[in-house]
Design a protein around this nucleic acid. Structure first.
Ligand SMILES: [Zn+2]
Ligand SMILES: [Zn+2]
Ligand SMILES: [Zn+2]
Ligand SMILES: [Zn+2]
Lengths: 145, 145
DNA sequence: CTTGACCCTATAGTAGCTTCAGGGTGTGAA
DNA sequence: TTCACACCCTGAAGCTACTATAGGGTCAAG
């Protein structure tokens, strides 16, 4: 299987595969005399493992760890669990801060209910006033709520 | 006011200020004979404007646009509103996808209720099986829900 | 006249790819 | 056979928004 076919089967870009190989996440395949990479089904498994972890937002460094645990399964379950726990925590924090952000943006958006020109844009006014240290609707709502 | 004082007043790093100047977000200040940057209160306003926008997750490219509207306020309120609307939409999408991600991670986590060794780690097993194309608890819960 | 806190520039590093430049390979058709 | 075209290769640069590092200059106090 050539790299383009592997990419199609796994649903990723050719460049991504080469990148994972360079980063030593994917074991290097055999090469044809012309230098073409030739993959087998085990490579598809490896690649899917990486892509699946990536779709869960797991970093390449963490995936490297997981792959090591996979290769040497005598220990480390506890570490795997902790890795996922840490990850859940950080995703949760991201969700919380983005939700706050969304609220702040909506408050800001309401400052300009109908469009006129920039001189009278409530959004721009709010941003400029905040820069002058006068407090802002968006971040003040955080305290008052 | 020297760069260190400005940084302290605005609550950012000195390097960040120099970076914004290089990116033409901040107007270049006068220099002392020795080459030191000397800032005035208007610079603090500019910098606070940028930092406040950044705290709302607005990109530097978008801040550049907003600063342009601020400089030439004859038009463009509608564009400002649209910029914020687009931004709210993208933040909202991020929140949604991260919430889904958190759910998936929690499903995955439950596959390993108690630690033993990696060979029996439900998390690792789930990830490996998913890579073999057998379907996974984490992403299948998406469909079943 | 030296110490230490500050300032300067230019460059490289971060994450996870994507894109580009500049070239080779392999196959089907004219 | 020779051409076109799709695919493959490498190495380097680009993306975001900074942060860090190297190597040096300035200034006030003691
Ligand atoms: Zn407006
Ligand atoms: Zn605000
Ligand atoms: Zn486990
Ligand atoms: Zn899954």
């Amino acid at each position: 299987m050539l790299i383009g076919e592997l990419a199609k089967m796994a649903g990723c870009e050719v460049e991504t595969i080469r990148y994972y190989e360079k980063e030593k996440l994917l074991t290097a395949p055999d090469r044809s005399p012309a230098g073409y990479r030739h993959y087998r089904s085990e490579h598809l498994g490896e690649l899917n493992f990486i892509l699946h972890c990536r779709s869960l937002g797991i970093s390449l460094a963490e995936i490297r760890q997981l792959a090591d645990f996979r290769a040497d399964p005598t220990l480390a379950c506890e570490e795997i669990n902790q890795l996922i726990d840490r990850h859940i925590k950080s995703v949760h924090q991201q969700v919380e801060s983005l939700r706050l952000l969304e609220q702040q943006l909506q408050v800001l958006r309401q400052r300009c209910p109908q469009a006129s020109d920039a001189a009278h844009c409530g959004i721009l006014q709010t941003l400029v006033q905040a820069a002058e240290g006068e407090g802002c609707a968006c971040h003040d709502s955080e305290r008052s709520s």
